Amino acid sequence: MEYATLGRSGLQVSQVCLGAMNFGSSRIATCDEAEATRIVDAYLEAGGNIIDIANMYSEGESEEIVGRIVKNRRSSVLLATKGFMPQGPGPNDRGLSRVHLTKALDDSLRRLGTDYVDLYQCHQWDPATPIEETMATLDGFVRAGKVRYIGCSNFTAAQIVEAQWAAARIGGTPFVSLQPQYSLIARSIEADILPTAQRHGLGAILWSPLGGGVLSGRYSSVSELPEGSRMSQLRGSHIQLAKAWVDGLLNERTLGIVQEVGKIAAELGTTAAAVSLSWLRRRPGVTSVIIGPRTLEHLRGSLTAFELELPAEIVERLDEISATGTLAPINGMDASR
């Protein structure tokens, strides 16, 4: 397992980050605690050291499961969780305000069974809260010892800059990490988000490196989706953003990329997923890549993929077939270009 420094900090994180979104019993989480324990054990034995969670995953159950699993080895595991998403019906039950983040962090600590988290991340930008309030609140968490480092997820380049400037103005703690979507079929962050993160001292921990499973080769049609698949569940969701995300990742353009990636995988005697992950982990500015296995077998296959080194000519082919028509600056969650 390789390790790298996370942004402008002294924290060493493994190149593979274990995502715990599938731990629990929600509609899209199908990994029970017994299987989650096997996955975490194997991941840590392989040298991984960071587990990514969020308070919204399985309505908090994911944090509870992870907390129980790592209870007796807490000091050797980096826990990264997030706050922002709705935790109740009230007007202050979501967002990046001091009121909500304070309660959200305390609830996460309780579920995780720990008195601190190593990395606390803003799950997304909050236009309703002054960024100075958010950064001051996060700095207070660090000074109180409840949080070691802070980061953000799905921020645009401008939002990253605003947050870092706000931290500097108040003499507070800056972000050291960004969690964006990035893959062979979602390269939009290369335009300005990733370069801005690098310039402002944020290391990138990537989510959806296989484009929601599209790059694994599981999907061969835009309209006919495997029953029970994540794309099928999200497309059938009442949440418009979820449907838009699926449409951005699963279309004729992306299926064409997947077909070419499959050809390259066949030439190399490996899988499309392995090729996709190997290409991604060597991209400039990338610190760690989140994988979200549902089974121990899935984890082992993903870990093997990180041992693959692609020849330079293959990297060039992948760059060419996945190039977007334009790298215009867009939102950090957009996967449509």
Rank of each mutant, 00 (worst) to 15 (best):
residue 1 M to R: 11
residue 2 E to G: 06
residue 5 T to Y: 09
residue 8 R to P: 03
residue 9 S to V: 01
residue 10 G to A: 03
residue 11 L to F: 13
residue 11 L to C: 07
residue 17 C to Q: 02
residue 20 A to S: 14
residue 26 S to W: 11
residue 31 C to V: 10
residue 32 D to Y: 12
residue 32 D to K: 10
residue 37 T to A: 13
residue 38 R to L: 14
residue 41 D to G: 09
residue 48 G to W: 02
residue 50 I to H: 04
residue 52 D to P: 08
residue 53 I to G: 01
residue 55 N to D: 12
residue 56 M to Q: 12
residue 58 S to Y: 10
residue 59 E to T: 15
residue 62 S to V: 07
residue 69 I to A: 06
residue 71 K to G: 08
residue 71 K to A: 12
residue 75 S to G: 05
residue 75 S to W: 11
residue 79 L to G: 04
residue 86 P to C: 09
residue 90 G to W: 00
residue 96 L to W: 07
residue 100 H to S: 05
residue 101 L to F: 01
residue 101 L to I: 04
residue 110 R to C: 09
residue 110 R to Q: 08
residue 113 G to E: 06
residue 116 Y to P: 00
residue 116 Y to A: 10
residue 125 W to I: 06
residue 144 A to K: 02
residue 148 R to A: 07
residue 156 T to H: 13
residue 159 Q to V: 04
residue 169 R to S: 09
residue 169 R to I: 15
residue 171 G to W: 02
residue 174 P to Y: 00
residue 177 S to Y: 03
residue 182 Y to Q: 04
residue 182 Y to P: 00
residue 185 I to P: 01
residue 189 I to Q: 04
residue 191 A to S: 11
residue 195 P to E: 02
residue 205 I to R: 01
residue 212 G to V: 09
residue 213 G to V: 10
residue 213 G to Y: 14
residue 216 S to F: 06
residue 222 V to G: 10
residue 225 L to D: 14
residue 226 P to V: 14
residue 235 R to D: 03
residue 242 A to Q: 11
residue 246 V to G: 13
residue 247 D to F: 08
residue 248 G to T: 12
residue 252 E to L: 15
residue 254 T to R: 12
residue 258 V to Y: 01
residue 260 E to G: 13
residue 265 A to N: 07
residue 266 A to H: 05
residue 267 E to I: 07
residue 267 E to W: 06
residue 275 V to I: 08
residue 281 R to S: 04
residue 286 V to K: 06
residue 288 S to A: 07
residue 290 I to M: 11
residue 291 I to A: 05
residue 293 P to G: 09
residue 297 E to G: 12
residue 298 H to Q: 10
residue 299 L to P: 02
residue 309 E to W: 01
residue 313 E to A: 11
residue 316 E to D: 12
residue 323 A to L: 12
residue 330 I to G: 05
residue 332 G to Q: 03
residue 333 M to I: 14
residue 333 M to F: 12
residue 336 S to C: 07
